[in-house]
């Protein structure tokens, strides 16, 4: 057996990717393209949202078409607090976690009584309710949105005032979310979710009240996504209800499918490919949506397991040849 076959391709790809992300601010400076860091920041914010969606969709089979609502709740937690001149960062995070958690607890408790298409529709309905609530709230800008004049304030080296500080905040939370998902999947809780996704009747017959575990997962996922929202608000400096339209939720699902539903790093890979492809194509052609759509269809048709699964298959081919 030679050394090449021993190195796991997939692990290698992800390790290189993480190293690149860790030194990205350096690279974009060196390349003299600081705006590239902005593109990357925005992408990684979305990646956090996709990672959180993976927790319910990938590990628990709950296809939510309303996940962007939590992105919105997180962003508005920053926006509304700043509107009242409250800029303390920890306060923003606390508001985001509490409000998203509560919203998820109430809407999840109702949505999770349904399955399949009904669940998709009811989660979408709840997120549209949140959307229209914000559209009609004149105090907070209604559909014109709300300008956030200052970023969340954190002391010392935690500061996110400059774009580099914010980037590392985003990367830090993304890594924490990935680590959390990985641990959760293999812990008792994750086993129950996984089992209930594949055979709910069996899990209940074993004595698991699967509804409660699903609801807990739904709430955790919502809170994780709200952190992405907090970061989005800070990054964008402006928020409007558009952030939580159902098409955004659909995009999150698409990114997850491209990356690999149920895998740990797939959501990150999927989001990167999705957004960077979008960026690149849109510079090439005015009518870039058409090739973009075709490419996405090809990506999905090429492999059900997404990018993560391709890497796994490549690995197997290499091992056979090595």
């Amino acid at each position: 057996m030679n050394l090449r076959a021993l190195i796991r391709l997939r692990a290698l790809v992800y390790a290189v990717l993480l190293i690149l992300l860790a030194i990205a601010p350096l690279l974009t400076d060196l390349a003299g393209k600081p705006f590239m860091l902005d593109v990357l920041s925005r992408t990684l914010v979305l990646a956090i949202a996709v990672v959180s969606l993976n927790l319910i969709l990938g590990f628990g089979g709950m296809v939510s078409l309303g996940h962007a609502a939590y992105l919105g709740i997180g962003a508005y937690s920053v926006g509304i607090a700043s509107y009242y001149d409250l800029y303390q960062g920890w306060l923003h995070i606390a508001i985001a976690l509490t409000s998203s958690g509560l919203f998820a607890l109430v809407t999840g408790a109702i949505s999770l009584r349904t399955r399949g298409v009904y669940f998709i529709m009811i989660t979408m309905a709840f997120s549209q309710m949140a959307y229209f609530a914000l559209v009609s709230l004149e105090a907070y800008g209604a559909d014109d949105g709300l300008v956030i004049y200052g970023r969340s304030e954190f002391p010392g080296w935690l500061s996110m005032q400059d774009s580099r500080g914010l980037y590392y905040w985003i990367l830090g939370i993304l890594l924490a979310a990935l680590l959390f998902n990985w641990r959760l999947l293999n812990a008792r809780f994750g086993r129950v979710l996984f089992g209930a996704m594949h055979n709910d009747a069996r899990m209940q017959a074993l004595g698991f009240s699967t509804y409660r575990y699903r609801l807990a997962a739904y709430v955790i996922s919502a809170m994780m996504c709200s952190l992405a929202g907090v970061l989005f608000g800070n990054f964008n400096g402006f928020i409007s209800p558009d952030i939580m339209t159902w098409t955004r939720s659909a995009e999150l699902i698409f990114m997850l499918i491209v990356g690999g539903v149920g895998s740990i790093f797939g959501p990150l890979a999927g989001t990167l490919v999705f957004v960077l492809l979008e960026e690149w194509l849109s510079t090439l052609w005015t009518y870039w949506h058409l090739p973009f759509g075709l490419l996405l269809i090809a990506l999905v048709l090429a492999g059900k397991g997404g990018i993560d699964d391709w890497l796994k298959r490549l690995e197997r081919v290499r091992r056979r040849n090595g």
Partner: peptide, 29 residues
């Protein structure tokens, strides 16, 4: 009625897990 994508051991461990306290444990594999 089994969890088909799991191994026999993993299936069996679920049954054991079901009667050994709650499963709101998120960290330990």
């Amino acid at each position: 009625s089994l969890i088909l994508p799991m191994t026999l051991l993993e299936n069996m461990m679920l049954a054991v897990q079901a009667r050994s306290g709650h499963s709101f444990r998120f960290w330990k594999p």
